[in-house]
Amino acid sequence: MTEPTDSVFSDADVAELYDVLNPWNSGGFRADAAFYDPRILAAASVLDVGCGTGSALKAARAAGHTGRLVGIDPDVAALERARRCDEVAWVEGRAADVGRWPGAFELAVMTGNAFQCLIEDDDVRASLAAVRTALCPGGRFAFETRHPQARAWQDWPIGVTRAQLPDGRVLHVTYQIDAIVGDVVHVAEITASPGVDAAPDRVLRVDRMPLRFLDVPKLNGFLAGAGFAIGQQHGGWVGEPLSPQSTMIVTVARRL
């Protein structure tokens, strides 16, 4: 597949496709939703860092959360979808910007492996410092990142994901690995229209993204340096201990 030559799949289309491929599905099959939902509902004030289309906070409000809910993300098209729910405050910005709300939240979350979008050491430090500032004393920061030992990227180029948008368009989504530099994996997500009568798929869009795979010692070093203590840290969504078989690093850190 080659790069598309025209813009036939917009940023808004990408945001809609994300929701189709990643339904939050509270109470359903998503283990991450089952992990985050009760923690969000139990906190009087919640900040979703890298909220995307806002699924987690919209689900919390629909489930009866009556406190302050704020989502922040740099993706304008994703926020446009999030803003269809006007019962949550949606803000354009990055993780390093959340220090604008000092001491305002009991809980901050970063779902969907969004933590892996913090690439440079300075990005990680600035983002964690800002999250700590946004939390009240003793506040919690819950997030996950893929464990590098599982080498999840090796499976991403295998197979095609079929998706259908609400308007009936059928799409094929595939992935390729462009490069691996240190602990950063450069991934291309390729969205295509299926070919007809054995014709090749027509590429509509290629989105390239770097993802950082921090190991446990380096991750915990960043957290300690930012003024966090590890409250819980697991190798999966239901409390599995970290082990050589862990595919995830699921962390709840406490502001000191």
Rank of each mutant, 00 (worst) to 15 (best):
G27Q: 07
R30V: 09
A126K: 06
H65R: 07
I40F: 06
R151V: 12
F213H: 08
A199R: 13
A31E: 12
S243N: 11
V216M: 01
D73Q: 05
F35K: 06
V170T: 15
L214D: 09
F228M: 07
I177L: 13
V98A: 02
Y36H: 00
R132V: 11
D37N: 05
P157W: 03
W156H: 14
L256G: 09
W101A: 07
T5F: 10
A33N: 01
L107S: 08
R146W: 06
G93M: 12
L128H: 07
G182Y: 00
V8Q: 14
T53G: 09
C136N: 07
D97C: 04
G54L: 03
M1C: 10
F213S: 02
I158C: 14
W24S: 05
E3P: 08
A198Y: 15
G239L: 11
D97E: 09
Y36G: 02
A62Q: 12
V185D: 11
V91W: 12
Q245T: 13
V216Y: 03
P4F: 03
V203K: 03
V187T: 07
F105G: 03
V98R: 05
G235I: 10
Q233N: 13
F141V: 09
D37L: 04
T161G: 10
N220Y: 06
G50M: 01
T111E: 01
L171M: 06
G112C: 06
V173N: 01
E106D: 10
T251V: 13
G138W: 04
D201L: 11
I190S: 15
V109Y: 03
A104K: 14
M248T: 12
A129K: 05
L256I: 11
G54V: 04
A129V: 09
A12E: 15
V173F: 00
D121R: 00
R61W: 08
D123G: 07
E189V: 12
H172R: 14
F228S: 04
A134M: 03
A89Q: 13
V187W: 02
P137L: 07
I40E: 01
D178G: 14
V216S: 04
E144V: 12
F35Q: 04
A104E: 15
V109G: 04
A126L: 06
G221I: 09
R39G: 01
H234F: 01
Q149D: 14
V250P: 00
I180V: 15
A134D: 00
P166S: 15
T174V: 15
G103Y: 02
D32I: 05
D6W: 12
F222H: 06
T174M: 14
H172F: 06
W90S: 05
V216C: 02
P244D: 07
M248S: 14
R81Y: 01
D48K: 03
G64T: 11
A163N: 11
L69G: 07
D97T: 02
P137Y: 05
R140G: 15
G168L: 11
R255S: 11
P194S: 11
F35D: 02
L118F: 10
D48I: 08
G168M: 12
G159A: 03
F9S: 06
Y18C: 06
A129L: 01
I177D: 10
T111F: 00
V250D: 00
T133G: 09
Y18V: 02
K58W: 12
A15P: 00
